[in-house]
């Protein structure tokens, strides 16, 4: 709705001769000014996102019949995801569904992504800290330096990792030449660990940037004040720096977690036969399996799961922050 009311106003706001009354209105109404600022973004979002999204929601209630779509509304697609049945166990957890493959792959993808995100954010924080507080004169240089490797194609970087971890790869050849092993190690590549390593390489720079941004804006006088009050470096970090940089950590975690859940390319490239993910199945519904309704339902299913985890995470972090403030 915002875009409808805000649209024409933008035109007015840009044209120079503003009526005095309009200006007064603008100054008075916080929300109105906010919406005007938001309008361009919301318009783009509305046209390119809301319309497709509504389409997807609608599609998830239809049925694919070969190349036709049966437009009768049905919950069949959702039911096929969670219909109880004999099921399987995965990682010792029972999945009592008739088609457990969807839920199992979802859990697998979420776990993989959680592990990757934790590793990446933990590795990113000290680097961001370094750029924000130590690299005083060369901040821009460092920022670009960490992104430049990403400008060579993703695919080439995956090849590079295969060369490092592979059968006759850098790591194996190195270990053999110094006599640690005799035969190439097979477990380096084509397994979940290789996926985590490759994802870390791909996303680390992405995770560093938001943390850096929020560390950068911390008021240095606060840190001095903490030192003056006799806080040790560690205490100062825990009481001042870390809480103040939390928005960046949160952004960074979300930025890595959310897209990697649906990633199906990296696992397919370096994950070996175990490299199938929920994203693989969804992608197949829009491709080879040609079942858009099921693909849509699975996408929504995945989105709900991710949203739930994100909310849980934000709620947990929020609680911590409140506690920290109270203390």
């Amino acid at each position: 709705m915002a875009s409808v009311t805000g649209g024409p106003l933008v035109g007015h706001a840009r044209s120079r001769p503003l009526s005095q009354r309009f200006r007064a209105l603008l100054l008075r109404s916080e929300a109105l000014r906010g919406y005007i600022l938001l309008t361009p973004t919301l318009l783009v979002m509305f046209l390119l996102l809301v319309v497709p999204l509504c389409g997807m929601i609608a599609f998830s209630f239809f049925t694919q019949v070969y190349f036709d779509i049966d437009f009768t509304l049905t919950l069949k697609n959702y039911w096929s995801i969670i219909k109880p049945g004999a099921g399987n166990t995965y990682l010792g957890i029972p999945f009592p569904f008739e088609t457990p493959v969807y839920t199992i792959l979802l859990v697998k993808s979420l776990l993989m992504s959680l592990v990757a995100t934790s590793v990446i954010v933990l590795m990113a924080y000290p680097m961001a800290y370094f750029i924000a507080f130590r690299a005083t004169n060369h901040k821009f240089l460092w920022l670009v330096l960490i992104t430049v490797p990403l400008w060579t194609s993703y695919l080439l970087r995956v090849f590079a990792w295969k060369v490092i971890l592979g059968h006759n790869g850098v790591l194996n050849s190195g270990l053999i030449s110094i006599g640690v092993i005799e035969e190439p190690l097979g477990f380096l590549l084509y397994n979940p660990a290789a996926v985590i390593i490759t994802l870390t390489h791909a996303w680390l720079a992405f995770a560093i940037l938001p943390i850096y941004v929020s560390l950068e804006k911390i008021d240095r006088s606060l840190l001095e004040a903490a030192t003056d009050l006799g806080d040790s470096k560690l205490i100062r970090f825990l009481r001042v720096t870390l809480p103040l940089s939390l928005p960046g950590v949160i952004s960074s975690a979300l930025m890595v977690f959310i897209p990697t859940v649906g990633d199906y390319v990296t696992p397919a490239q370096v994950g070996g036969t175990s490299g199938i993910m929920i994203g693989t199945i969804i992608q197949r519904q829009f491709g080879a399996a040609n079942n858009w309704p099921l693909g849509s339902a699975l996408s929504i299913f995945m989105m709900l799961a991710v949203t739930a985890i994100v909310c849980l995470f934000l709620w947990g972090v929020g609680n911590d922050r409140i506690k920290a403030r109270g203390a």
Partner: peptide
Amino acid sequence: TATAGYLAAGALTRRELGKLMAGAGL
């Protein structure tokens, strides 16, 4: 085939979107 369905869905949204777009000068 399915294309007919997509088109029909398109026609519906096109009208609505047309209005919005005209309003916004997009």
